[in-house]
Each structure stands twice: as structure tokens, then as C-alpha cells.
């Protein structure tokens, strides 16, 4: 009856060497972080492109970008991941067939980064667009009046000006990206959540492993929070404190 307490405390299961599963969990964490970092950076590129297009693009581009951000934000990430995972690999293989190359086997890692990037891109587009619009127009006009080139305006005025407005949203999206990687477990990417379930299934110590994985995710979040606070302090330097 008290077996399960013994079960909970069987720490040797978490040992790093093969009879233990600690190494496997850390490997899963590494995959999760790789997907999160890769997807976030890809999403940032999509976001910069999307925000620029929405602000300066022609009417057709703006409408298409509106469709992109609305679609991605209205459909569950899980469904998007399935759709993009199959559609993305399918499209690439069709392309390879078209140019006469061999079918390629896309690694789960690459597909995962692509999927997270597309999802993140839609949200980052909105964050960056909002931050960009928060820079007072008079400042940009003043910079132009001083004779700065558009690149100088961007570097000296627009980017530092939009940073304090963009950082909270972007930081939040980074935390979402780290947690969204767990959804890739459903398509079989060996990230932390999936390897945890495999470890639990093999040893029947589900509780122990899921708690351990939860702690790992929590540590990622908490460490990120420390970094975020630093970046935020840097971005807001010289501005009055909030509240």
C-alpha cells in the first residue's frame, strides 16, 4: 500500500548513467531548448518581416499578412503543428521531386523549428507592429530634420524607442515558445515531454518523472525570467519607473 512512496523516492531512476533516466531527460531538454531557440529566432525573422509588411507594404500584402496572423491565432497550436508538420514535409518532398532530387527525410527537429517559427511569427508580428507604432512620430521627424539617414533613424531612434514596448511581449512569447515545444510530443519529436512519458512508461514511475520534467521546465522559465528582467531594465533605462 505504501509502495508508491517508495516509488516516489527511487531517486536512482534519475541517475545520469543508463540504468537511470536522468541523461535521457536532459537530452530531451536539450532538444526542447534547441527547438525553442530555433523557432523563436525564425519567428523573429517572420515577425520583423510581417511587421514591416503590415506597416509599409501595399494593400494586398497587408491583407495577406492579416490573414496569416488571424489564422494562426485562431487555430489551436496542436492543430497547426499537425497541419504544418505534414504539409511542410509534403511540400518539401514535392519540391524535391520537381527538381528531380531524392526524397528527403526531414528530421523532427527541423520540422519542429519550422512549425514553432510559423506560430511565433504571427504573434511576434503583432508585438513588433504595436511597439513600432508606439514610437512618437515627432521623434522620427525631428531625427530626419537633423539630417539623419533612414538607417541612422532606425538605429538611433526607432529601435531604442520601440525596445521598451517590444520587450515584455517578446519575453512572454519566448516563455510560450519553450512551453509550445511540448506539443511536438504529439508528432513524435523526442523532446522533454515525450521522453518523460517514455521513461514513465518503461519504469511505471510516472509521477517521479513528470515532476522531474516539470522542475526542468520551471527552471528554464525562472532562469529566463532573470534574463528578461535584465533586458527589460536595459531597455527601459532612462525612463520613469512603472507604478
Amino acid at each position: 500500500m505504501l509502495d508508491w512512496i517508495a516509488d516516489l523516492a527511487s531517486w536512482e531512476l534519475l541517475a545520469l548513467e543508463p540504468p537511470g533516466w536522468g541523461g535521457v531527460l536532459l537530452g530531451g531538454l536539450a532538444v526542447s531548448l534547441q527547438v525553442a531557440v530555433g523557432g523563436y529566432i525564425l519567428g523573429f525573422l517572420f515577425g520583423v518581416g510581417g511587421a514591416t509588411g503590415k506597416l509599409y507594404g501595399g494593400p494586398i500584402l497587408r491583407d495577406l499578412l492579416d490573414v496569416y496572423t488571424t489564422l494562426v491565432r485562431a487555430v489551436p497550436e496542436l492543430v497547426l503543428i499537425l497541419l504544418l508538420y505534414y504539409a511542410g514535409t509534403d511540400a518539401l518532398n514535392q519540391l524535391m521531386l520537381l527538381i528531380g532530387a531524392e526524397r528527403v527525410d526531414i528530421s523532427g527537429l527541423a520540422a519542429g523549428i519550422f512549425v514553432i517559427g510559423v506560430v511565433q511569427g504571427a504573434y511576434q508580428t503583432e508585438v513588433l507592429r504595436g511597439a513600432f507604432k508606439a514610437v512618437p512620430h515627432g521623434q522620427i521627424e525631428a531625427a530626419r530634420a537633423y539630417g539623419m539617414s533612414s538607417l541612422q533613424v532606425l538605429r538611433r531612434i526607432t529601435l531604442p524607442g520601440m525596445l521598451p514596448h517590444a520587450v515584455p511581449g517578446l519575453a512572454n512569447l519566448w516563455l510560450i515558445a519553450t512551453k509550445d515545444t511540448a506539443l511536438l510530443a504529439v508528432v513524435g519529436v523526442a523532446e522533454l515531454t515525450l521522453v518523460t512519458r517514455q521513461a514513465g512508461g518503461t519504469t511505471k514511475s510516472y509521477f517521479l518523472f513528470f515532476c522531474a520534467a516539470g522542475l526542468l521546465y520551471l527552471m528554464v522559465t525562472l532562469i529566463s525570467n532573470v534574463g528578461i528582467r535584465r533586458v527589460e531594465r536595459y531597455a527601459r533605462r532612462g525612463m520613469p519607473a512603472v507604478r
Binding site: 509502495d3 508508491w4 516563455l175 511540448a182 506539443l183 509521477f207 513528470f210 516539470g214 520551471l218
Partner: peptide, 28 residues
């Protein structure tokens, strides 16, 4: 709030279903 917001929902769900579910089975 920190724990819930700092871990993926899928993990919480599986912790409750597989973890808690398997613990309950121990109790006659």
C-alpha cells in the same frame, strides 16, 4: 501561479492522468 504558468499544459495533463492515476491504483 508560477508553477502552472512555468510548465507546459501537456505535461501537467500527463502528470495528472498517468501520475496521479497510477498512484490511485495503489490504494485499495
Amino acid at each position: 501561479c508560477t508553477v502552472i504558468r512555468g510548465t507546459p499544459l501537456l505535461l501537467q495533463l500527463w502528470l495528472l492522468y498517468y501520475g496521479l492515476g497510477s498512484l490511485f491504483a495503489y490504494w485499495p
